[in-house]
Design a protein around this nucleic acid. Structure first.
Lengths: 154, 154
DNA sequence: GACAAATCGGATGTCGTGGTCCTAATATCC
DNA sequence: GGATATTAGGACCACGACATCCGATTTGTC
């Protein structure tokens, strides 16, 4: 339902939100903590700096931090840059003139679903999600076994 | 939301449903009528014969026809072979232990959306959709410009 | 100034979906 | 039986998502 990049973005920014007090976080740090591919995550973070959600600092003590408080960041903003084409879903039946006077039987329920999806993302802030998105590395700080590579996850 | 193959499948079987009285339809005929790429549509129809939704006949007077009345075919069946991985959407936040005692704030609304999507497809039959899915070639029979090849070279 | 650590950013590789092309198998019509 | 029309099915190409690699650039520390 979401692209993987979008999911990574939500999780990374959640970590930024939780650790906000500690200044900025390095990409490698975030990737390690969440078990994500570091190089790929770096690219995602760069795209998020381009959209203005986070700002970055280069060099020795560099890293990423949220540009706004997490309470003011909707998940939709986080997800949007990686979810191109989600909004432009045409009618299931391929109509051009579907939404006008004669909507297909699927049109209304599908539209409702799309709108529900949109509203959930628009109505949930990063602050609401962040605590849960971060504290799932197991009860203690010992590394659990759910981050093993085994990349073949269909 | 649906793969393109799934959408083509729905439209093609809708045409089969509407024209059911006329025996079987050739793939090229369906593709021409709906403005779909004929070779690709043929592949889709073959997959649908493999799942048992339609049966095919080879040779001179060959073609495809529905194996069951359209009233008994749920859209979910049509869409399923092309929608692999739709059901297995994990938690947005990457949890493994999310659905147990501690669901993330996104979990419930996302689950609801997924279920709504599923229920719409499972609760709508081909017969309900078919008439609309077919009669959308525009007011006249003039070919719109959405089928230009331009794929061209080499 | 030299070094190290970090982001920036392009090149490349892999995989699944969408799509085309060509040959084989099969059925009908003459 | 042969020409023809159709499905069957593999090989191939294009493109975007996912991911890695490597060099360039910036910045702090010695």
């Amino acid at each position: 339902m979401l692209t993987r990049s979008a999911e990574y973005a939500v999780r990374a920014l959640s970590l930024l939100a939780v650790r906000q007090g500690a200044g900025s976080l390095r990409a490698a740090e975030i990737a390690d903590e969440l078990g994500l591919p570091p190089q790929f995550l770096t690219k995602i973070l760069r795209r998020l700096t381009a959209t203005g959600l986070v700002s970055s600092q280069r060099g020795r003590a560099g890293g990423f931090r949220l540009d706004r408080p997490a309470e003011e960041i909707a998940l939709l903003e986080v997800v949007e840059p990686f979810q191109e084409g989600m909004e432009g879903v045409e009618c299931l039946l391929g109509q051009r003139n579907c939404s006008d006077r004669a909507a297909c039987p699927l049109h209304e329920p599908m539209e409702k679903i799309r709108r529900a999806f949109h509203d959930v993302l628009a109505g949930t802030t990063l602050a609401e999600v962040a605590p849960r998105a971060v504290r799932n590395r197991g009860p203690s700080s010992t590394r659990p076994m759910h981050a093993l590579p085994s990349r073949g996850d269909r």
